[in-house]
Design a protein around this nucleic acid. Structure first.
Length: 509
RNA sequence: GACCCGGUAGCUCAGUUGGCAGAGCAACAGACUUUUAAUCUGUAGGUCCUGGGUUCGAUCCCCAGCCGGGUCACCA
């Protein structure tokens, strides 16, 4: 115990003192009648209706939360208690509580969980407050939370936090402390839950069936990415964590489940930055008898639905950008947009000229890039950052899209595929699904050749998937979407780590 | 993976051209029965990220490493 810092020691001493006074520092339950926000609204209603007592008291309430501010004045104390709904002021008076119970308050600290009961009133300064008649310690906090001091500007009502908890690393590693002292962080994750709920509601209403497919797979596929590899001991075989749901969901379409979706954790063994976490949440859906045009329409309806339901508006603020979320979204063809940017028709350019153009722009890592990859690199450099307003980019090169159908009227080697960009970030990716098993086998073989040449992100041949296609898959449109990125957009967070409760970090120690 | 920035009290940060380590908040003791960044008086609190090196002496300079952030690369 000698190695504890003085702040930790002080709290343990209080814990012993509480027990010595017969106070259990870790209660078993409590029965609150209200949340903080509900107390305020109920009091204000009673006030308006003239239902307060002669001395201005409203109803008696019970409230439970964490002590987040404490101002002792000798024989009276003001404090703030915060619960899931917000914070409320408490007023403790020695002549209300009695000498002994008032003295016991000395053993409380910021961060303690407390239940209080008493009538609600409005202080001289106008703040709705509980005059505490009795209190119950629910859980002693033995480690000080990094509370800042919250100042409210009396004129603007603006909140300023002093000496807050800003160490980014500590906030991610100790998310519990981050959440405990930052109501706005809790709000981000409430919004996240609503986004996911609205995505579900939208697809359910469209007649989709939610399904679950394996996260642990003998063969991975459906995207270009390196997997996490693990071992099943009893089966004595290598297994992979999924990088995408795609191939399993389309097997279900073959099986006659004509509208399916899955919200899943996917895992990609790649770098980490503000748009990438190694495990992330993906939504994928597949709808029989539709093509990518139908799916663009569905995506537009889905995005406007979610934005409207979550924010109540038809626009978003993301960083410096004001983003209008109104249908229809802009649509550009990839090769047209790139040709405009290069002031020359990409369809007429061979691999050599594309490479020269890329080199002119000092785009790195061009070694081994084929025509499709070069087009993609140039597009990423020249066009993507300009796609701030919602924009569908159409018709990707076949080399980049081994699971997409060829464009029906185009011999130039493009596929019926779109990506939806918002705020310069790829949010959705959909296509008319390739359902010709012979073509699919050729595409897989092409991927296998890339793999043999050292592309460790190329896909493997999935014979079972080809067998499924041979039984016959109806024309199908499918879409994948990064849920975390959509949440970033809707909560105006610049890092994916700020919308994932426990982002991947290096081991600490 | 490359480069840049950072790591000092529970939190937020100063600082030392290399010489006993500083502030505010939090803590502790005291005063104060309508305060709200409460106020006032006093006290205590440190592996200056880790390991080497240089030096009479390193938190500071050098080297290596760890962790984080940012930018880039990777990630269709």
């Amino acid at each position: 115990m000698d190695d504890l810092s003085q702040v930790l020691k002080a709290r343990r001493e209080k814990l012993e003192a509480l027990r010595a006074r017969g106070i259990e520092p870790f209660a078993y339950n409590y029965d609150p009648t209200h949340h903080a926000a509900g107390v305020v609204s109920a009091f204000e209603e009673a006030e308006t209706a003239g239902e307060l007592s002669e001395d201005g008291d409203g109803a008696t309430v019970r409230l439970a939360g964490r002590v987040v501010a404490w101002r002792a004045h000798g024989k009276s104390i003001f404090a703030h208690l915060e619960d899931a709904s917000g914070r409320l002021q408490l007023y403790f008076k020695k002549d209300v509580l009695g000498d002994a119970r008032f003295a016991d308050l000395e053993l409380l600290d910021l961060g303690d969980w407390l239940g209080v009961e008493g009538p609600v009133f409005r202080t001289r300064m106008g703040e709705v407050t509980v005059r505490v008649r009795s209190w119950t310690l629910l859980a002693k906090s033995l480690r000080p939370l990094p509370f800042g001091k919250v100042e409210t500007d009396p004129e603007t009502g603006e909140r300023r936090v002093h000496s807050g908890f800003t160490d980014t690393e500590a906030r991610y590693r100790q998310r519990y402390a981050d959440l405990a002292v930052h109501p706005e962080v809790r709000a981000v994750f409430r919004t996240r839950a609503r986004v996911v709920a609205e995505l579900r509601r939208f697809l359910d209403d469209e007649g989709f069936l939610e399904v679950e497919t394996p996260a642990l797979q003998p063969l991975y596929g459906g995207a270009s990415a390196r997997p996490f590899v693990t071992v099943h001991n009893a089966l004595e075989r290598t297994m992979f964590l999924r990088i995408a749901d795609e191939l399993y969901l389309k097997r279900l379409i073959v099986g006659g489940m004509d509208r399916v979706y899955e919200i899943s954790k996917d895992f990609r063994n790649e770098g980490i930055d503000r748009f990438h976490n190694p495990e992330f949440t993906m939504l994928e859906w597949y709808q029989a008898f539709t093509d990518y045009e139908d799916q663009m329409d569905l995506v537009e309806r889905m995005v406007t639905h979610v934005v409207e339901r979550v924010t109540g508006a038809d626009f978003l603020t993301f960083g410096d950008h004001e983003i209008r979320v109104t249908r229809p979204f802009r649509r550009i063809r990839l090769l047209d947009a790139l040709s405009d940017a290069l002031a020359s028709d990409v369809r007429d350019m061979g691999e050599g000229e594309l490479r020269r153009r890329a080199e002119d722009l000092s785009i790195p890592e061009l070694a081994g890039a084929g025509r499709g990859k070069l087009i993609d690199k140039l597009f990423g450099e020249l066009v993507e950052p300009t796609l701030v307003q919602p924009t569908f980019v159409l018709d990707y090169p076949r080399e980049l899209s081994p699971l997409a159908k060829p464009r029906r009227d185009d011999a130039a080697g493009t596929t019926e595929r779109f990506e939806l960009y918002i705020a310069g970030v790829e949010m959705f990716n959909g296509f008319s699904e390739l359902n010709d098993p012979l073509d699919q086998r050729e595409r897989f073989e092409g991927q296998a050749r890339l793999r043999a040449e050292g592309d460790d992100e190329a896909q493997q041949i999935d014979e079972d998937y080809i067998r499924a296609l041979e039984y016959g898959m109806p024309p199908t449109g499918g879409v994948g979407m990064g849920v975390d990125r959509l949440v970033m957009l809707l909560t105006n967070q610049s890092s994916i780590r700020d919308v994932i409760l426990f982002p991947v970090l290096r081991a600490d120690e």
